[in-house]
């Protein structure tokens, strides 16, 4: 059918746990987008992910209030904090190390993030994840 795009938004939505509370409720509600249909579809699509993992989700909506969603993998920082068992990254990463991760964990994260990374192969993806680790004060051992 004839789709006229009106806008798009990117929300951090917890896997399997979308509900009408912020940010989903106000972001979609203020645009008149069917919140319950979004939550139902999002929760079904993320049912196999770890519950609560933050998923950046791009929602594009059209003039008749229909919408599409593109669910990305959780951010690298989420995976790294989990692997290093830390709550947050370093405030001064160049001078402070808050935790460590192994190369095997970096590979696992790279594999999980591969579809959303601008990398040709797993080695390139691992380099990107190692860069993220450094910027958070997490050392790769």
């Amino acid at each position: 059918m004839a789709k006229k795009l009106v806008g798009s938004m990117k929300l951090q939505v917890p896997a399997g746990q979308a509900n009408p509370s912020p940010p989903v409720g106000p972001a979609l509600g203020q645009r008149g987008i069917n919140i319950m249909e979004f939550c139902k579809a999002f929760n079904a699509k993320t049912a196999d992910l770890e519950p609560g993992a933050p998923c950046p989700t791009v929602i594009t909506y059209y003039q008749d209030k229909s919408f599409t969603m593109d669910i990305k993998t959780p951010p690298a920082s989420y995976f790294l904090k989990k692997a290093a068992k830390v709550k947050s990254g370093a405030t001064t990463p160049s001078r402070e190390t808050v935790g460590t991760v192994t190369s095997a964990q970096i590979r696992e994260i790279a594999e999980a993030k591969m579809k959303d990374l601008n990398a040709n192969d797993i080695d390139g993806a691992m380099l990107i994840i190692m860069g993220s680790a450094r910027s958070m004060g997490i050392e790769v051992v």
Binding site: K65, S66, F67
Partner: peptide, 15 residues
């Protein structure tokens, strides 16, 4: 028709 992930809810001039 629920307003969801396909065009054609009746709210647009074309439908």
């Amino acid at each position: 028709i629920e307003a969801a992930m396909a065009f054609g809810t009746g709210h647009h001039g074309t439908t």
